[in-house]
């Protein structure tokens, strides 16, 4: 890393702090993702890496390159914005797919189609309809 030889020590300490914080949060998130028991618990863990993990590393990169080139370098923030905007989309789609699959298999751990009015689902199941027809996901959301 000879390009960082004449960086002020204060800047180096700040960059080092942010890069280690971001990588550490990402590691904890992936560790939780590996260790937790059910899929619905596991879906929470990687958000550590996509929220503050990414933000801290992007911040470290911005500070380092701004100090090295003596001008404001902000293009890394595009990655931060992109990850923030896209993560909800992927997690929502994936969560819905998992919910749909579990409902189709009548897994007892997930709520039925209409949680407050469960009687509707129950009465329809009594008619002997296949579970997949009852558990059609609602696709009219935003």
């Amino acid at each position: 890393m000879s390009h960082a030889a004449d960086l002020p020590p204060g800047v180096a300490v700040v960059v080092a702090f942010f890069v280690v914080l971001g990588a550490g949060l990402t590691l904890v998130g992936s560790f939780g993702f590996y260790r937790l028991r059910s899929f619905y618990d596991r879906i929470h863990a990687p958000t550590l890496g996509t929220s503050w993990g990414t933000a801290a590393i992007v911040m470290a990169s911005m500070i380092l390159f701004s100090a090295l080139q003596s001008r404001l370098v902000v293009h890394e923030i595009l990655i931060g914005i992109f990850v923030t905007v896209t993560t909800p989309v992927t997690l929502m789609l994936l969560g819905r797919a998992a919910l749909y699959r579990d409902r189709a298999e009548r897994n007892p751990d997930v709520p039925a189609m209409d949680p407050p009015k469960g009687s509707l689902v129950a009465s329809r199941e009594d008619d002997g309809e296949p579970a997949a027809a009852v558990a059609q996901p609602d696709v009219s959301g935003p």
């Binding site: 929470h44 550590l48 929220s51 993560t87 909800p88 819905r96 919910l99 609602d138 959301g141 935003p142």
Partner: peptide, 26 residues
Amino acid sequence: LSVIVTSTPGTAWFDYNAARGVLLIH
């Protein structure tokens, strides 16, 4: 709201029923 709920670790947005306006989070 979905971006807020999902980017906060600990809550995840799963389903929104537009007809009844009921949100399901984990």
